[in-house]
């Protein structure tokens, strides 16, 4: 009798776990299928290359927003990736120093600062003094969000490189900075790349910080010193508009953004499985 109860209990609990996992997946598939259904019909070649058109005029697209997002992410990465990697190197290679412990805490706090506050901060220190919304300010806010993410993953990946590797480098008569930069970091390179891609996927969808920094632009931006359109902001503007065809375009924009992030995540999977997350191959 007791055995029977135990057996049914086991089946029941197994079912509960399976059910909970399934329920967690439902929203994900829901989002994907809904965005696909709504966005797909509005996607066309023109959507990727054309400027937005006034309401009622057909053939408008998100060309400037897509390009704007690419520019913002690129600029943010140029600043945020090296900065974050250097910070991560310090955290990993000088991990016992008081400064590193303090820095690690700060980085963790920075990770959880709401992105809208990052936007306000950049508004205060970049937009106000320059008296203009700009791509530069937008990129600065995204970079600030990237740095802690990149720093912490870099740190974790460098910690996986065995001490014997560092010692072998030192024993070759190489200065410590060369050992760190050309041997330890190289051993962790695919893991660090994973962190960079994670950070890119994270900032690609950020909207709040861009509202106060890059703002938006109905046209192509010609310099980095003027406001620039971006996918998330454009989606926001179109989604809250009262026009049906703009809603459709917002769905299409959402689909593009979603696929970009999905692609980046798949690429991360690929990196992890093919190289073993920066450990030995």
């Amino acid at each position: 009798m007791r055995d029977l109860i135990r057996k049914y209990m086991d089946i029941w609990m197994h079912g509960v776990l399976l059910g909970a996992s399934f329920v967690a997946l439902v929203p994900l598939f829901g989002v994907f299928s809904y965005v696909l259904k709504k966005g797909w019909p509005a996607l066309s070649k023109g959507f990727f290359v054309n400027l937005p058109t006034p309401v009622g005029e057909v053939g408008g697209g998100f060309g400037n927003a897509i390009l704007g997002s690419v520019v913002l992410i690129l600029l943010a990465s140029i600043v945020g990736v090296p900065w974050g990697v250097l910070c991560g190197i310090y955290l990993a290679e000088y991990r016992r120093s008081k400064l590193a412990q303090w820095l690690r805490f700060t980085v963790d706090v920075l990770t959880s600062v709401p992105s809208i506050i990052v936007g306000l901060f950049i508004y205060a220190i970049v937009v106000k003094p320059m008296a203009n919304f700009s791509a530069l300010a937008g990129a600065a806010s995204l970079a600030l969000i990237m740095i802690p993410v990149v720093a912490r993953t870099t740190e974790e990946m460098l910690k996986l490189v065995p001490r014997a590797t560092r010692e072998a480098g030192l024993a070759l008569g190489l200065p410590r900075w060369k050992v760190i930069l050309f041997i330890t970091l190289r051993g962790a390179v695919s893991g660090v790349a994973t962190g960079v891609l994670l950070a890119i996927a994270r900032v690609a969808g950020e909207t709040a910080p861009l509202l106060f920094t890059a703002f938006n632009n109905r046209y192509w931006s010609h310099t980095l010193f003027e406001p620039v359109a971006s996918l998330p902001v454009q989606i926001y503007v179109y989604a809250i508009s009262p026009f049906e065809e703009w809603h459709q375009q917002a769905w299409a924009g959402a689909l593009v953004l979603l696929f970009f992030i999905l692609f980046v995540n798949l690429f991360i999977r690929f990196l992890i499985f093919s190289r073993g997350a920066g450990r030995t191959s």
């Binding site: 490189v161 065995p162 014997a164 590797t165 010692e167 072998a168 480098g169 024993a171 041997i183 190289r186 051993g187 962790a188 390179v189 695919s190 190289r275 450990r279 030995t280 191959s281």
Partner: peptide
């Protein structure tokens, strides 16, 4: 060293 430690990657 004791354990072979070629440089990774």
């Amino acid at each position: 060293f004791q354990k072979p430690n070629p440089f990774p990657s």
